[in-house]
Amino acid sequence: MKLAFLAASAVTLSSVVTLAHGQDLIVNSYGGPYEQIIQEAIIKPFEEQYGVRVIYDAVGSSQQDYAKIKATNGRPGFDVVVMTASQSLEGCREGLLEPMSAETVPNLAHLNPAISAVAGPCGAVHEIQYLSLLYRTDKLAEAPTSWKDLFNEELADRIILPTFANIMAAYLTQVMSSVHGGDLNHNIDPGFEAMARLAAQAVGFEQASAILESYIADGRVWAMPFWDGRAQLLVDSGAPVDYILPEEGSVPLIATLNVPAGADNKELALQFVNFFLEKTSQESWVQSYKVGSARPDIEVTDEARARKITTQADLDALLLPDLDALSANLADWGMRWEREVVPAAR
């Protein structure tokens, strides 16, 4: 009798939970200030427009979220996740992410095709940042203009670099390669050679963006590579810093929205993705998070225009890496980094 009662409650409870979940969308992304921005700019408008509830999950970096998707074979428990183009490609290849098309996510058609191609069929590019050169306005006599300025004598022991476990490191190597006569994907030796020289200028290596940021915020370093979105936030916070897109160009950090292949609420998830890619949503996102968009048709302030990737021209000027090649090379480059770059620092 007791057993029957327990069984009945279990069934009822799970169906209630499923029903409840049926009305909710679980979106997984970052916490902190990011969370407040995304809530205001995207999530609340979405909830209002579609009359649903969004449960926001701030736990886990994009790497940890991807690991969860992989470990659960596509059923991680959330419906939408913010990751990067590299993970979109890999996840798609492994069948862990839901492919998106112009039918399911109409706004995909409005995105720059070259950028979309980089992310592959399972990722919707909702945000683009570029690798900028962040510097202290009060410590440098002149504003830098080129990546080569990082090698200046005045910056000896005045820069900080990311560890290889931060994808920024690989991107930076690619940029340096391009700047010093190599290319982004295959002729990478000039890049490593440059990074070794750059390491001699560095006080060390750090993993997390927040910690990297602290070095320039308290003046221990005077210049560093950094993603432009976060750089802008730092400027807005009142720190005596500014950032440039160096004259040689830069590589983008292509962030994507993904839907796990086994998500419970796939339909609503795809609608959310589509919503994020709306002209108005993209404009709101660019203005609030100080990032760029893959939609060349948005209308934003001049300030945003000047500093972010917002136009076709901007998009065309980006140095786009072959992410498949990057993924294949990553292990080797990691070894090279540890062997050639890290020892040059101390």
């Binding site: 690991a67 993993q207 990553l330």
Partner: peptide
């Protein structure tokens, strides 16, 4: 620090960054 790799931290990197499980 960055240069200090022991097996535990290397495993972490392989799982999350390189995704070579």
């Amino acid at each position: 620090g960055a240069g200090f790799k022991v097996l535990a931290t290397m495993v972490y990197e392989q799982v999350l960054f390189y995704v070579d499980w």
